[in-house]
Amino acid sequence: MSLRIVLDDRPLPRRVGLVTLATDHTTEVDFSVLPARGIGVYAARIPFANPVTPERLAAMAGDVTAAAALILPDEPLDAVVYSCTSASVVIGDDAVRAAIRAGKPGTVAVTPISAGFAALRALGADRVTLLTPYVAETAQPMADCFEAGGFALHGVSSLGLADDRDMARLSHGTIVDAARAAVAPGSQALFVACTAVRACAIIDRIEDAVGVPVVSANSATLWAAARACGATGPIAPGQLMRVP
């Protein structure tokens, strides 16, 4: 008896690559909602050693292209996400996206900064409160980046953590309480920085607490990557996910 072997085109019709930090506990979990929408998620990890300081973040610049190229080599991806907010600022958002495209030509290159800015603009928010888990020397360049991007910052709050593994351990209750304390009068939205912070799955709770739309680093990149793959409609909690 001979067996006729039939190969499908690909296991899932659309594909997203993640370049995550070696220490990341959170991004892959947040992106696990995509396979149910027919979008595969494939990750490569990039070397990183704490603490989260501008110097340590900048050291990742030379590894982005190789990490992107490692994700399903010689196969196309619809989008590649570099999952580090603060490094996107320190290295330079344009430089990070160029490095992604050098490793995966033709892909949509996504960072938390490019996606976050697009998300806030899609929500009609230009007066923004920024909440970060970082120490001051890491938070300040991000605040400067938001202002350079055309946003009026109505408050910047930082939790003073230097280890991204601790950032990933922040309880949901702590995140909600920090958001409530951070949001300043007149702010049209809250941006929660850091892909390690487990805010994406509880955006609706945070929005109920603060009374304005909330965008987290991972909700922004998830939204951007899903839209690059043609997915529409809510894929996670929050007002952003209802935006086309």
Rank of each mutant, 00 (worst) to 15 (best):
P133W: 02
F151Y: 10
R121V: 06
C84D: 07
G116V: 09
R56Q: 14
A199V: 11
E147S: 13
K104Y: 00
S158Y: 15
E75P: 00
K104S: 00
D24I: 09
I202V: 13
R14A: 14
P133V: 10
V212T: 00
Q239G: 13
A217V: 05
F117P: 04
E207T: 05
G116W: 02
G150E: 05
S219H: 02
I202F: 12
A193F: 02
L190F: 08
G38Q: 03
V41G: 03
G186I: 07
C145H: 12
P133A: 03
I91E: 05
L159G: 09
G149W: 06
R97V: 03
Q188C: 06
L240K: 03
A99C: 04
P141L: 00
P51S: 04
I202S: 12
Y42M: 01
L3G: 01
V81D: 08
F117Y: 14
A209N: 00
G17Q: 06
S158V: 01
F151C: 10
A217E: 02
S114P: 11
L130A: 12
L18W: 11
P237H: 06
P47H: 05
V176S: 03
A226H: 11
P73M: 08
A125I: 00
I100M: 09
E207N: 07
A44K: 03
S157C: 04
L77S: 09
R227E: 01
L123W: 12
F191V: 06
E28T: 09
H172Q: 15
A66H: 12
L18K: 01
D166M: 14
I206V: 13
Y82W: 14
Y82N: 02
G38V: 07
I100Y: 08
M1V: 14
D208V: 10
G155D: 05
D93T: 13
T138I: 04
A66R: 14
H25V: 08
V210P: 02
P54I: 04
A99P: 00
A217D: 05
R45A: 07
L120C: 10
V243S: 03
T23M: 10
S157H: 15
M60A: 11
Q239E: 13
M167K: 06
A189C: 04
L7H: 15
P11T: 09
A228F: 04
A179N: 05
R10D: 08
R205A: 15
A178W: 09
R56D: 07
T195L: 10
M241D: 10
